[in-house]
Amino acid sequence: MRTGALEWVDAPERGSVRLARFMVWLVHTIGWWPGHALLYPIAFYFMLFSPRQRRVARRFLGRALGRKAGFGDVFRLYFAFASTILDRAFLVTGRTAHYHIEVHGLEALKARIAEGRGCLLLGAHMGSFEALRAVADAGSPVEVAVLMHEANAARLKAVFDALGGAKRQEVVIPLGTTDAMLRAREVLERGGLVGLLADRAPRGERMQPVPFLGQEAPLPTGPHVLAAVLGAPVMLAFGLWRGPRHYEVRFEPFADATPPGRAGRQALVEERVRRYAARIEAVCRRHPYNWFNFYDFWQECGR
């Protein structure tokens, strides 16, 4: 199964780059607290003027909360999203002083790193990628690379540049180039970490329908195929927003290294996509306001 048109490419990301620029300007001039106060009207504004995203967000929340989602629920989600964008401006530049970042599972990650075989870190579009990276960058004795969509990578670079180009250890490998996976492999060979978000895929990627919050949703198989081809161990990684300047970063064991070869690969990949979905589902139920996939995730429209 391959995806048809995906909406996320023009989902709130476009607005969020403008928002991020504004936030950068804001925090440089007035600081975090006034910025935080402004999140209320900003979240309200975005919620009001994105009816399509509001609808899918509400449907997601209903499923994650197990009850009908109201106005307040949707607002909380938008507010959390705006908060992570504000915080990005601080976290990227390493200004983490007033932040409370709880870290779980760092020992397991360090044990993986100590094995020297590298590790794939699979995340999702939940919470803050920046909080996650703040921990991965600061806590990692090895190199960290992130596989990312070219368009997003360019946007992210624009935001980083606007922030004054922080010196980061980590490298962005743009997906969609022929040698992207070769580069990822070389990072792993050097014992490094390679992160990628495994809940979305660009148009044309192979997808597998799996149960997710009570409905079948198409999830990409690519990240799991990559892990199988490389035989690399896999951990899950989340940077969840818990409240103002409060994040929970989690690293969870997911899969051990596997022997190379195609034998049994399809079954392995299918099992992992299902298990990944189940794990994401559990995190969604615990942290429902962290889901930042503002598009028709279940591909229900036009069904």
Binding site: G176, A180, L182, G222, L226, V229, L230
Partner: peptide
């Protein structure tokens, strides 16, 4: 072919 195929091909 995609970039994962490129990786397998390289291997």
């Amino acid at each position: 072919l995609d970039s994962i195929d490129a990786l397998e091909m390289a291997l």
